[in-house]
Deep mutational scan, measured.
Amino acid sequence: LRTVEMKKGPTDSLGISIAGGVGSPLGDVPIFIAMMHPTGVAAQTQKLRVGDRIVTICGTSTEGMTHTQAVNLLKNASGSIEMQV
């Protein structure tokens, strides 16, 4: 596991798309980074990659989380965001 910290302002975009989660079209698979926009906050860290499994978001485990719950957690996060992948 590695921990990645990002700074995100209220109008900034992380610039990632995620897939997976409980009840997702892919089945109940762990949440992972499906796409990254090169100008997004996540890409700027140069520490995240497409395919990385997201284990925690700001200390909250993604295990058993639906896709929608994970998306909302990421969208609503601002300031210092910590992810374990």
Score class of each variant (00 low, 15 high):
residue 7 K to A: 09
residue 77 A to F: 08
residue 73 L to S: 06
residue 23 G to D: 11
residue 31 I to N: 00
residue 70 A to Q: 06
residue 43 A to H: 10
residue 60 T to Y: 13
residue 19 A to C: 09
residue 1 L to M: 12
residue 16 I to Y: 02
residue 61 S to Y: 03
residue 54 I to W: 01
residue 25 P to Q: 08
residue 20 G to R: 04
residue 75 K to E: 15
residue 57 I to H: 03
residue 75 K to H: 11
residue 51 G to M: 04
residue 81 I to R: 04
residue 48 L to H: 06
residue 64 G to T: 07
residue 85 V to I: 12
residue 6 M to S: 04
residue 22 V to F: 11
residue 37 H to G: 04
residue 29 V to R: 09
residue 38 P to V: 01
residue 3 T to M: 07
residue 78 S to K: 14
residue 36 M to Q: 01
residue 40 G to V: 02
residue 48 L to D: 08
residue 30 P to I: 00
residue 23 G to T: 04
residue 60 T to S: 11
residue 15 G to A: 02
residue 66 T to D: 08
residue 28 D to V: 03
residue 75 K to T: 13
residue 34 A to Q: 13
residue 82 E to C: 11
residue 1 L to S: 07
residue 20 G to D: 04
residue 27 G to H: 00
residue 4 V to G: 00
residue 2 R to T: 12
residue 55 V to R: 05
residue 49 R to A: 13
residue 78 S to Y: 10
residue 74 L to R: 02
residue 43 A to M: 08
residue 30 P to W: 01
residue 12 D to E: 15
residue 68 T to M: 14
residue 81 I to F: 13
residue 13 S to W: 11
residue 66 T to I: 02
residue 63 E to Y: 09
residue 54 I to C: 02
residue 18 I to P: 02
residue 24 S to N: 05
residue 48 L to R: 03
residue 21 G to S: 04
residue 11 T to Q: 13
residue 83 M to W: 04
residue 41 V to N: 02
residue 32 F to D: 05
residue 16 I to Q: 02
residue 52 D to F: 04
residue 25 P to F: 06
residue 25 P to R: 08
residue 79 G to D: 12
residue 12 D to Q: 15
residue 21 G to N: 00
residue 47 K to H: 10
residue 85 V to S: 07
residue 3 T to K: 12
residue 65 M to N: 05
residue 63 E to L: 08
residue 48 L to Q: 02
residue 56 T to N: 11
residue 3 T to F: 11
residue 38 P to E: 10
residue 15 G to H: 00
residue 15 G to Y: 01
residue 76 N to T: 13
residue 71 V to K: 13
residue 69 Q to H: 11
residue 23 G to V: 01
residue 52 D to P: 00
residue 74 L to G: 02
residue 49 R to W: 07
residue 72 N to C: 10
residue 76 N to I: 08
residue 24 S to D: 04
residue 55 V to D: 07
residue 69 Q to I: 05
residue 77 A to C: 14
residue 27 G to S: 03
residue 38 P to M: 03
residue 62 T to R: 02
residue 3 T to P: 02
residue 51 G to S: 04
residue 82 E to D: 09
residue 39 T to L: 13
residue 53 R to V: 13
residue 16 I to W: 00
residue 46 Q to T: 12
residue 82 E to H: 12
residue 68 T to K: 14
residue 3 T to L: 10
residue 11 T to F: 15
residue 61 S to F: 06
residue 36 M to H: 04
residue 84 Q to T: 14
residue 2 R to P: 01
residue 85 V to F: 00
residue 21 G to C: 00
residue 26 L to S: 10
residue 60 T to P: 00
residue 67 H to K: 15
residue 73 L to I: 13
residue 35 M to P: 05
residue 43 A to P: 03
residue 44 Q to G: 09
residue 32 F to N: 05
residue 19 A to T: 08
residue 24 S to W: 10
residue 63 E to I: 10
residue 80 S to H: 13
residue 83 M to A: 05
residue 74 L to F: 09
residue 81 I to H: 06
residue 38 P to I: 00
residue 56 T to F: 00
residue 11 T to A: 13
residue 8 K to I: 15
residue 56 T to Y: 06
residue 71 V to G: 10
residue 8 K to N: 04
residue 45 T to F: 02
residue 56 T to P: 06
